[in-house]
Every structure is written in structure tokens, then in C-alpha cells.
């Protein structure tokens, strides 16, 4: 139960919503599927006086633009992404990641934009503060950090747990942001600050309008893995998204993007490992070497009871398998291209 009063409005266009939020000011928040916002209101880590609901706003189904980019409205429900034939064909990794979110009931209402805009998480933060952890922590505007008491006031090691953001990073996606001054298009990575206190670059009154995903190159392979304890209805222990290209003549990598999620304040690219991959034959021995390197390159925050060494172990093994899957898919795709 939400134990405070608030207003609720339901404008019929994104432009009207942005205008209305700018009018009401900082006490207003956008509400999309509500699967992050409502629990956060219930436990009192956000207390908006006014919710501007986006749920009455019509949105277009996923489509390809003139350049072959896949365009998805930010209000698209995750279940629609999961089941869209177009998304499955053009960006199967995105469909896979949407499918991995929570459970079906949540995916029926949760939106793509909301998933990207979700708050960072921490065991201490994500609970009621009636009698436990009553003093507000840094993230809630207070003066302490429960899990990391030595942290300075400007450091919050909460983790960003979107299952989808790392995929969009690996796919080199772009994002259109609508603000009072109109729409701007940015690389997806520009959405994230890497700061647990304020994980997004969006200003109040700005909202994600749509996502753009470039067409996959011809010798492309992808791999996605969400490590969990029970395989569903949970956020990731660690999450990895791999997009790679191989040269036409074999399994030598020509380009690769690896994004790791759920273990830092935002999705993290593995620049060094990606650089090592380029020009390398992606055989099992090299994949093992790359996964070892990647597990050292990531600097996971201990979160939700998982230790840093375990998270490294988890990423090392699962990234190796995810890379192998991506290579296999690239190979399959190559065969398809030839035939």
C-alpha cells in the first residue's frame, strides 16, 4: 500500500506529458508500466506529489525505418517486444532480453522506456524504512551508506539491473529523448551516468521517446546470458550481452561489443577485451582467454549477497559460453548467407 496521497493525470500524447511535467515541476514523475515506480513509492524511496501517466498515450508497433534501423516506441510493452516477429528477426537479442525480465504478468505492463529508466537497486534501499534502516541513506538524501559505511557522500554502490540496457549497448542502439526543447537522438550509452546516486542523464521533464537499433551486419553473432539463482522472477546476479562480427573467411573476429549488466551502477562495456578480440580467431582456447581477461576487466560491486570474487567467477564462465554461442550464431549466419 502506498501510504501518502498523490495526484494522477493521464495526458494523451508524449508532448502533452512532457509539457505537463515541466509545468508541475520536480514533484511530478512520469508513470509508465509502474513496475518500478509503484514498488518504489510503496517503500517510500520516491514520493511524487503527482504522477503523469503515459499509459493512455498511443504508440506505434515496432517498425523498420528507411535505413533499415529497427524503431521501437519506448511505451512498447516488454511482452510485445518479446513476441514481435519483427523484433525477433531484426534484433533477436533484444527479444531474448525482454523475455528474461521478471515474469509474464510484469512484462504485460512494463515498458521498454521504463525498463531503461529503472532505479538502481540495493538490498538496503529496496525495502520499507518503517523500522529498519530508518535513517535515510545517501541515495534517499540522507547521510549514511548501510552496505558500505566508509563510502563518501557522493558515492552510492547500488547496481543498475536493467536486463535490456546492456543488450542495447552491445547492439550500438540509439535513443530519442523528448524534452521541453524537442527531441534529440543519442547513443544509448549517453543515457547512463555510471553514478548510483543519479544513474540517468535524463533531466526532469525528459523522457525516452523511442529506441533505434541499427541493422545487423552480415557476419553477425550475438549472445545473451542472465545469471540468476532460480531462473525467473528475479533480477540478474550478473548479465552479459555480446555482439560480434567475424570476417567472411572464417571465425576471425572483426568487431565486437560486450556489455555487462547488473554488477555496476550502469551497463559497462569491456573495451579492453573487445580490443583483444579484434583480429583474433575465436576458437575455444581464445574464448577462454578472453573470458578470463573480461572477468578481470570488470569490477563488479558486491550486491544482493554475491561477493565480488563470485561475480567474477560467474562472469568468467558464463561469458565464455555466451561468446561461444555468439560465435556459433555468426557461423550459422555465415552459412545462411552463403546458401
Amino acid at each position: 500500500m502506498i501510504l501518502f496521497d498523490f495526484e494522477h493525470e493521464s495526458p494523451s500524447s508524449t508532448e502533452a506529458a512532457v509539457a505537463r511535467l515541466n509545468e508541475v515541476g520536480e514533484e511530478a514523475r512520469f508513470l509508465a508500466g509502474g513496475t518500478d515506480m509503484i514498488p518504489n513509492m510503496r517503500i517510500g524511496i520516491v514520493k511524487p506529489e503527482c504522477l503523469i501517466s503515459l499509459t493512455s498515450i498511443p504508440y506505434a508497433p515496432p517498425a523498420l525505418d528507411a535505413k533499415g534501423w529497427l524503431e521501437i516506441d519506448a511505451l512498447t510493452r516488454l511482452s510485445e517486444i518479446e513476441h514481435s516477429k519483427l523484433v525477433g528477426d531484426a534484433a533477436p537479442m533484444l527479444a531474448a532480453s525482454a523475455h528474461s525480465v521478471a515474469g509474464n504478468q510484469i512484462r504485460q505492463v512494463a515498458t521498454l522506456g521504463g525498463n531503461l529508466c529503472q532505479e538502481t537497486r540495493c538490498l538496503y534501499l529496496n525495502q520499507k524504512h518503517d523500522f529498519q534502516f530508518v535513517e535515510p541513506c545517501f541515495k534517499r538524501g540522507g547521510d549514511c551508506c548501510y552496505p558500505f559505511p566508509k563510502n563518501k557522500k557522493n558515492v552510492c554502490w547500488s547496481v543498475y539491473m536493467s536486463d535490456i540496457a546492456p543488450v542495447l549497448v552491445a547492439l550500438n542502439a540509439e535513443v530519442s529523448v523528448l524534452g521541453a526543447g524537442g527531441e534529440v537522438r543519442l547513443p544509448i550509452a549517453a543515457l547512463f551516468t555510471g553514478d548510483g546516486l543519479r544513474p540517468h542523464t535524463l533531466n526532469p521533464g525528459e523522457l525516452i521517446r523511442r529506441i533505434h537499433i541499427p541493422p545487423a551486419p552480415s557476419h553477425f553473432g550475438w549472445g545473451y546470458h542472465k545469471s540468476t539463482v532460480r531462473g525467473g522472477l528475479e533480477f540478474a546476479t550478473a548479465l552479459m550481452a555480446v555482439a560480434l562480427e567475424v570476417r567472411a573467411n572464417g571465425l576471425v573476429c572483426s568487431d565486437a561489443r560486450i556489455a555487462i549488466g547488473a554488477v555496476n551502477e550502469g551497463p559497462v562495456r569491456l573495451d579492453k577485451t573487445e580490443a583483444s578480440m579484434k583480429g583474433l580467431e575465436l576458437n575455444p582456447a581464445n574464448l577462454r582467454m578472453l573470458a578470463d581477461q573480461a572477468s578481470q576487466e570488470v569490477n563488479p560491486l558486491p550486491h544482493h549477497g554475491f561477493s565480488k570474487p563470485y561475480l567474477r567467477d560467474n562472469i568468467r564462465v558464463h561469458l565464455k559460453r555466451t561468446l561461444a554461442l555468439a560465435v556459433e550464431r555468426a557461423g550459422t549466419r555465415m552459412k545462411e548467407d552463403r546458401s
Binding site: 538490498l123 529498519q132 531462473g231 525467473g232
Partner: peptide, 28 residues
Amino acid sequence: AFMEEVMTKNGYTLNPNWLDYRMPLIHN
């Protein structure tokens, strides 16, 4: 055996919800 644990620190409960206290699901 595999998943459930009430995590505590100094008498405070760290995972007081169904999301972070993991009960098995049907597919487990």
C-alpha cells in the same frame, strides 16, 4: 538446499521481500 535464506546483518533483515528472498518457482 539451493536458494532460500533470510539474510541479516546485526539483527536487521536485508531481503524482506519475495524478490530477494528466493522461493523456488514452478520450473525449479
